[in-house]
Design a protein around this nucleic acid. Structure first.
Length: 223
DNA sequence: AACCAGGAGACAT
DNA sequence: ATGTCTCATGGT
């Protein structure tokens, strides 16, 4: 199997089908960071409501989130689910964000340092960290989510046994060979994968229209 | 009315 | 290192 070629071919097919996705939805890097935490295992629709509540209460900054009553913060986050844990995770993120000196100071850090810093925050795992690195800090980091793993292992392009880091490096390496600017490419690609997961493979029984001729989660194998 | 969504951490094995 | 549980609202 030619992983690099296959990975690039899938991008071309997805892009031809869905077009540019214009990610990440959000008006500022900080709002993107907030969204990355709130969208953990949660539909984006529900995240938008929670963010709207934060906005309505002038709580879309690290300072205002830390200044808010924790119980009240949790209540604003209610629509996005897991509101107690997410309130704690958001506060953890804001503490770190402030302690590091805010966005400009963070933006000056090299990617490996920034990534390690994000991962040191309780509640920021690999996927959330990489969402933030790619979409808020515009670093060339590919985001691996559950659907990406399932999709590409089913296509036979990547081994299902690869762990997060191995799969991330496989993607980054496969895509960098194209000599294209990696950040816009990684940005578009992850967005397209998510779009494909929710638009093409849902409603569930209908995989026939899938542009990759792939299986939905409910189907065993694509053809 | 079960099942799932743009995961991560605590804990046991 | 690898499983299992928990967290929780809203749409299909």
């Amino acid at each position: 199997m030619n992983t690099a070629k296959g990975v690039r071919a899938v991008f071309d097919q997805l892009y031809a089908t869905y077009g540019p996705q214009d990610w990440w939805p959000g008006d500022s890097p900080f709002e993107i960071m907030v969204g990355a935490v709130l969208t953990q295992n949660t539909a984006w629709r529900n995240v938008e409501r929670a963010i709207a509540k934060l906005f309505a209460h002038q709580a879309l900054s690290a300072e205002s989130i830390l200044a808010a009553d924790p119980g009240q913060l949790a209540d604003w986050l209610r629509p996005s689910g897991y509101f107690n844990v997410k309130a704690r995770r958001l506060r953890n993120l804001c503490h770190w964000y402030r302690e590091q000196g805010g966005f400009e100071a963070l933006a000056a850090q090299p990617t490996p340092v920034l990534r390690a810093g994000l991962l040191s925050v309780n509640g920021i795992g690999p996927e959330t960290a990489d969402d933030i690195l790619l979409y808020a800090f515009e670093r060339p980091v590919f985001v691996i989510d559950a659907y990406t793993r399932r999709l590409f292992s089913r296509l036979g392009l990547l081994e299902a046994t690869l762990d997060y880091e191995a799969m991330r490096h496989a993607f980054e390496q496969a895509l960098v060979e194209g000599a294209v600017a990696p950040v816009p490419l990684f940005n578009e690609y992850h967005a397209l994968i998510v779009m494909h997961a929710k638009e093409a493979c849902r409603p569930r029984p209908r995989c026939a229209s899938c542009c990759l001729r792939l299986a939905c989660p409910s189907r065993q194998q694509g053809g």
